[in-house]
């Protein structure tokens, strides 16, 4: 009996330890990003990050200003969000409320298929098919710009946003809809004036989660945005995002150099931005009881 009790205790302790791994990983992520970023903050100093240029390799003077990378990420994120929101919200309404059951059985998995296409494949498609199209359509010198990146990122975010928004719409209590219909509202009036407003917090949270995915996406933007570190908010210009900067430059720096440390600073900023977006989304979901 004593042995059995001991055994039970041991199993429970093992499971606690395994569950705590996630906690450990999060702590280690902050620790190691910080550890590699701090040398930059100490030696060249944090003020160097406020520069207006990102030019980490130069014969005269290196610049490590985060501004062009921040505007780069902002341009593609805003472009992508502006494209994602209408398609996702309309799509979610259609799938949740209008589509026939058989149609829904096809639409849901098919759109989720989009979520499992590897980002590098989407980036390749963007490079070969979409960028030339954008170039020809808008008469630009190059199709590698913020807009092309934004379009592809929207494709990556749409399945996430649709499926969470759809959950939110489906979970609106039935009696709200029935009351509206009983008062003589048409089906469409009920959807647009009752169901969707009731599901709005969930839809907003879905968009925020989608934005978190967009900000953090690397391969697509690295392949199709042209990667010129310009301070611009024009989606028709080439931009360089934070993620692409890290991925493209980390392979070429020597460990422990200023540049290496600067890239970890970029990583910290990126981590904080996505952390805030995700936390915000979860707050919204929790406040309105849409998450268990």
């Amino acid at each position: 009996m004593a042995q059995r009790r001991w055994q039970e205790k041991a199993i429970q302790l093992t499971l606690v330890a395994m569950a705590t791994t996630s906690l450990l990983v999060v702590v280690l992520i902050f620790l190691f990003l910080g550890k590699e970023a701090i040398p930059f903050l100490k030696d060249p100093g944090i003020a160097r990050l406020l520069d207006r240029q990102w030019m980490p390799v130069s014969f005269q003077q290196e610049h490590f200003g985060l501004l062009p990378l921040l505007t780069g990420s902002l341009v593609v994120t805003l472009t992508a969000t502006l494209i994602t929101v209408p398609f996702s919200v309309l799509g979610a309404i259609y799938i949740a409320e209008i589509a026939r059951p058989l149609e829904r059985e096809f639409l849901k998995p098919f759109i989720e298929l989009l979520a499992s296409i590897p980002s590098v494949v989407l980036g390749f498609f963007g490079l070969v098919v979409l960028a030339p199209l954008v170039k020809a359509l808008f008469g630009l010198p190059s199709g590698l710009n913020g807009l092309t990146g934004g379009l592809l990122l929207a494709l990556m975010a749409i399945p996430t946003v649709i499926s969470i928004s759809e959950d939110a719409i489906t979970s609106v209590p039935r009696h709200l809809k029935q009351a509206s219909l009983a008062l003589g509202a048409s089906e469409l009036q009920t959807i647009l004036r009752v169901t969707v407003p009731a599901a709005l917090p969930g839809i907003i949270a879905a968009v925020m989660l989608g934005m978190g995915r967009i900000v953090g996406e690397t391969m697509v933007v690295m392949m199709v945005t042209g990667n010129a570190a310009l301070v611009t908010l024009n989606p028709f210009q080439s931009v360089r995002t934070m993620t692409a900067t890290i991925a493209a430059e980390m392979g070429e720096v020597s460990f422990g150099s200023i540049h290496y440390s600067a890239l970890f600073c970029v990583g910290v900023v990126l981590m904080l931005v996505t952390f805030v977006l995700n936390l915000g989304a979860q707050r919204v979901l929790k406040r309105y009881g849409m998450m268990t």
Partner: peptide, 13 residues
């Protein structure tokens, strides 16, 4: 939190 960390940050880590 972990679910929202960008993949490139996992790379850095």
């Amino acid at each position: 939190t972990l679910a929202g960390v960008p993949s490139i940050v996992f790379g850095l880590f």
